[in-house]
Write a protein that binds this DNA or RNA. Structure first.
Lengths: 345, 345
DNA sequence: CTGTTAGCGCGTTCAT
DNA sequence: ATGAACGCGCTAACAG
């Protein structure tokens, strides 16, 4: 900066002001400074700016448990967040530190980032508590039980399940199963709990013969659980949350169930995945990229105006019909074989 | 730091040396300093360290073209790189800036990162040239045509295609098609070119009836291209590169081809994807997480010892047999129906 | 083994 | 409208 100040024949601070625009500078000197900057290929030193200004213009994205595993949708969050931050002139720092409360504030404490984007939160989350009570700027992709004061964006799983069930009911399905995700641990993730709650409510409201099945996020267990459920429940349709959907298809295939002829499947997952399954999944498209983007924007907004009331967004996109759902066929066979008593409501 | 120096009754620099370990400190003062640090909950200011030391202890991962799209495997790279960097005490900064040469050096020029990890390089890549000629520390996940001086890790696609073809030949397949990925643009990505080259070599070496099909990374086009290829080539087996594999399965399904009964498929993709396809894909597992990890480690090693000769790693994992391959069956039917003239080679 | 001190590159207040 | 000078928090000579 000193070099360009000298070359432009001005004071060092003038250069700073030209750059930041925090002061009116005469067009004349402005020109000279900018020219010198161009000629010397000067690049501001982000670190020094951060040190002097006390703000890093970087946010941290906490990418929990990147235990080599699946969590394919996480990538979309990352991609969305990366885009949004870069558009707003922020850097995005990734951390795969374990999801312990002690870790979430580290990057901000070390002044590597101004704020934090949290993912995979549980209904009651100690990391959230830590950030909240410590007064750290943060946003969540997902949400908790007690959301007072929290800034977040989430997919409306309740609404998603409702759309899915309505679609299946419209097609004539009455025996619908929910395939939910669950984790090895005892953690209670919001989307799992909310999906189940919505499912149970709808089942009882409409007198459906649903039956939930919780499956584990391990591919093999998921598949076994699915096959067993098919035999026991004999659903004509399935609502599957997240990655479970992809595996349900495989399990159905193994059971000799053709989708959608013998079994309809509605998935709540990202369109990127829904498109490459076999057959492509009808479902409520999880707008993962958008959510990542919004999560970042909410945080950056918050950094700019810390006193604004927190934004809380629930995204409820429509159902996209692909090829995995159809009218139930088993029922006809069942009726023909043994005319059931139940009226069609 | 001044606070803890005062509290411990030492000079400020002593605190620094205790922290960095760059000097021998008597156990006594060491103790006092550490206690003061704990009591005051002192956290080093990364930015200030960076400014003073001239090294940020952060590396940038260039995640090109996060155009909302697929590129699911990219996530694994990111996850692997994130793990490795965090283990070595580095931060990982993500950038989705467009893949222009001007962008790749920005983060390092602005002192946000010490080096760069590049992905999705083309055979002749201007970004690589820029980094190389500018003397920037960087590593590549992938590699180029001219790799002199480059540090990289890549999947050995040539070897992968060879394993795939061998496996299919062992099963008795002779009419094998390659479904390759290609991008909308005219970019020449190494893995596409190398896969094709290997395929062509093997086809001619073994007198196979292969026929390559290039498909676009757009889900719908991929599927149409696949269906058309099935009709024209009537392959008994397919080798599919990356995401094409998932879509080939869907296309086969639509054509009424059962996998593996009517068509065997071998994929070169990540096991995370291979496991959730329907049926699970036999293939050479693309060790994406591992590659991301190695990419980061190579770069960090390079930052530590800039004068070491560059490491160039080609990973060639074995074939994993899942459920998408079997002995060819069509041939029998064909023979029975219309005894073909062609000898069995 | 420990202390002193000069920067690292920039933002910003105070004076002009 | 411009300039001089101090400080952000830390590292690394240099000096004991």
């Amino acid at each position: 900066m000193a070099d360009i100040a000298e070359r432009a024949g001005v004071a060092l601070s003038t250069v700073s002001y030209v750059l930041s625009g925090k002061r009116r500078i005469s067009e004349d000197t402005r020109e000279r400074v900018l020219r010198a900057i161009a000629e010397l290929e000067y690049r501001p030193h982000t670190g020094a700016q951060a040190l002097a200004s006390g703000t890093t213009r970087a946010v941290a994205l906490l990418l929990p448990a990147a235990h080599d595993e699946l969590s394919i949708m996480q990538h979309a969050f990352v991609a969305g967040a990366a885009q949004a931050t870069s558009e707003r002139g922020y850097a995005l720092t990734l951390s795969t530190a374990p999801a312990r409360a002690a870790e979430v504030t580290r990057l901000v404490d070390a002044n590597r980032a101004d704020g934090v984007i949290l993912m995979e939160v549980e209904l009651r989350d100690r990391r959230v508590e830590r950030l909240r009570s410590g007064g750290y700027p943060f946003s969540i992709i997902g949400h908790c039980e007690d959301n007072s004061g929290l800034t977040f964006v989430d997919f409306d799983f309740e609404h998603g399940v409702e759309l899915a069930i309505r679609h299946l009911m419209d097609l004539g399905h009455r025996r619908i199963a929910l395939f939910n995700e669950t984790h090895h641990s005892r953690r209670r993730y919001g989307y799992t709990v909310r999906s189940r709650a919505a499912f149970e409510r709808l089942v009882s409201e409409h007198g459906l013969e649903g039956s939930e099945t919780e499956v584990f996020l391990d591919t093999y267990k998921i598949r076994d659980a699915a096959r067993e459920a098919f035999r026991q429940i004999r659903p004509t349709a399935v609502v599957a949350v997240a990655l479970a959907a992809a595996v349900v298809l495989a399990a159905a295939h193994e059971e000799g169930l053709r989708v959608p002829n013998d079994l309809s499947v509605v998935g709540l997952l990202s369109p990127q995945l829904a498109d490459i399954t076999n057959p492509p999944l009808t479902g409520v498209d999880f707008p993962a990229v958008e959510m990542g983007r919004i999560g970042a924007e909410l945080l950056i907004d918050r950094l700019a105006k810390p006193d604004q009331p927190p934004s809380q967004l629930l995204l409820a996109p429509p159902l996209t019909i692909r090829e995995s759902t159809a009218r139930p066929r088993r029922r006809r066979a069942a009726r023909a074989g043994a005319p059931s008593v139940g009226a069609n409501r």
